[in-house]
Computed example of a mutant assay.
Amino acid sequence: MKTSFFFVFSLCTLFGFGQNEIVVSPALDVLREFDKVRDFTMDASGSESYFTIQSQTEDVSVISTSSKTGDAWGNPMIASFSGTYKDMEPFFAPDGLRLYFVSNRPLHDSINTPKDFDIWYVERLSTTAAWSQPINMGTPINTEHNEFYPAVAENGNLYYTGDRPDSKGEDDIFFSEFKNGTYSEPISLGESINTEGYEYNAYISKNDSYLIFGGYNRADGQGSGDLYISFKNTSGEWSKAQPLPQPVNSKQMDYCPFVDEATNTLYFTSRRTSNPDGPMHNMQSLVQFLNSYENGNSRLYKANMDVTKLRP
């Protein structure tokens, strides 16, 4: 149950079982009341965040935002550009002036029928200005297939998930170089990252040097979906992806990474449970489990972790 889960980690910290002990905890206390939350992005100042709140059936998927005052995050609000269609997977550009996201909204307001999922963005003139109306990224990024989970480095290079026919298997991580103000034709990253299975939800570091992404049911994983990291060498080649350690990866689905590089904090989504195999002897224990944070629904977590130390 929730109490025992955090008690274990508290003991590790309290009695100093190692300064590098990885502690996993809920990301934002103000999101505890929402039963299905995923995706997280934050601006460079660490005071403005966006995330996705969904219904259990995911028929409703809304991008919301929260601002931090001091050490406390404020109550979430629906983003100005969201709430009508299925929106998710926000990602801040490093300068904070553009926010990428995924939506099934139609290309034009005159069309009421949702389409496949595309990558969109909103932009603003300053970090205190209002967001523009959503803008579709267009070709060559968006196609008649689905595009998901955009992530952009400081040099403008774009990484995202695609289910295109040129994938190596199922969903792949695709890359498009930003050069001379335009995006190149996307390519599926190499076999050090993509496999015949599912790869998805890539976070790219600001300096374009490492990639954290989700891999499903891999032999070296904990089970279900796990988070993996790959590093780019000086010749531009990616190292063989390695799984992130426990307790970040669990037996349940772990996905949607984001790194606050200023504080070495990893944010991610997980469907972990505090008592996945334990008995439910009475209604009280069942209700307590269902109302706990680790009840198998999508929740946001954070971990103190310098991922750059995993470089081989």
Rank of each mutant, 00 (worst) to 15 (best):
Y216W: 14
V23I: 13
G162I: 11
T52F: 04
L14A: 02
Y121E: 02
D95L: 09
E199I: 08
S298N: 11
Q54D: 14
T113A: 08
E89I: 06
A44T: 10
F81A: 04
N249V: 12
Y160E: 01
S64W: 13
T269R: 08
I119T: 03
N146W: 14
L227A: 06
G278C: 03
A129L: 07
T113H: 09
N295C: 09
N282C: 07
A202T: 11
L300T: 03
P114S: 05
M280S: 15
P186H: 07
F34L: 09
L266F: 11
L125Y: 07
E123H: 10
I187T: 07
K206Y: 14
I193K: 00
T182K: 13
K36Q: 12
N146S: 13
Y301P: 01
S132P: 02
S47D: 14
P186Y: 08
K168C: 13
E89V: 12
D163E: 10
G83T: 08
D71I: 11
T234D: 14
S47P: 15
T182R: 13
C256R: 06
S192T: 15
N217V: 12
E199W: 04
I173K: 03
K251C: 06
P106L: 10
Q252T: 15
Y100H: 06
N217A: 14
S274I: 09
N201L: 12
Y267L: 00
I173V: 14
S239W: 12
G138T: 08
A219Q: 09
D254I: 09
Y216P: 01
N295I: 06
N295L: 05
E21R: 02
T3Q: 10
R272Q: 03
R32T: 13
N264G: 02
D163S: 15
A219L: 12
Y50H: 12
F40I: 13
F9P: 00
V287F: 15
S224M: 10
L107H: 01
D116M: 09
N249K: 02
Y203L: 06
E33L: 08
T113F: 03
E147M: 10
N146E: 14
T57N: 08
F174K: 10
S126D: 00
S110G: 09
S292I: 09
N233D: 15
L300G: 01
G18C: 05
L97F: 08
F34M: 03
K309E: 03
